[in-house]
Computed example of a mutant assay.
Amino acid sequence: MLPHAVSFVAKSGTGKTTLLEKVIAELKNRGYRVGVIKHDAHHFDIDHPGKDSHRLTQAGADTMLISSPEKLAVIKKHAESPPIEELIAVYFGDVDLVLTEGFKKSGLPKIEVHRRERSGTLLCRGEAHDPSLLAVASDEPLQLDVPVLDLNNPSQVADFVEERIIHATD
């Protein structure tokens, strides 16, 4: 059984990461095990030159895992990004909830983050109407067909996630 999941989406610079940091802390305080997947449209590298892991990857390893007593990291080469559902199924079986940042084109339920000073339009209720939008976390009142949450109240956002995502199918 897959863990519950919701994607936080927004235009770059809107404050997705800042909101997620606070929502994660709130959910952790409530006793939930939380996983996060961050979408990166650019090329990132966590494997640095000079480190043994980098040398092994450069030598041709398709998958390289580094493990310590506190954590592990997997570097897995692929031709294209796997579907978000596959990532959740493979890597997140040990958590109660997966929060994703980005993945605006996925079919996951979504909470859009909106900041008035960043943009006057929404991604999921603009030119396109995304049926997977559950709510908008905004710093201004909006008239929408989904609930509008207070962007500056991470506890309220966590309440919504708990009610609509975690307990929705329990």
Rank of each mutant, 00 (worst) to 15 (best):
G102N: 00
I165E: 07
L122E: 09
T57G: 09
A158E: 04
E112F: 09
G120D: 14
S155Y: 11
S81W: 10
E162A: 07
L87N: 13
K76E: 12
L149S: 10
T121E: 13
K51W: 05
V36F: 01
G107C: 01
I165C: 07
G120A: 11
K38S: 11
L134D: 02
H43Q: 12
E162W: 04
V34L: 08
I165V: 14
V9L: 11
L65N: 00
T17N: 10
S81M: 10
S132G: 02
D130I: 08
L97C: 01
K38Q: 13
R164H: 15
E163W: 00
Q156M: 15
K104P: 03
S12T: 12
L122I: 07
G126S: 07
E112Y: 07
E21C: 07
H167T: 08
K71L: 05
I66H: 01
E101R: 02
T100Q: 03
D40H: 12
I24H: 02
N152Q: 14
V113R: 03
V98L: 06
L2I: 02
V113E: 05
S81V: 11
L56E: 02
H39P: 01
A128G: 04
V6W: 01
A25G: 02
R116G: 04
G93M: 08
F8S: 06
M1K: 09
E101A: 04
E163F: 00
S12K: 15
G13C: 04
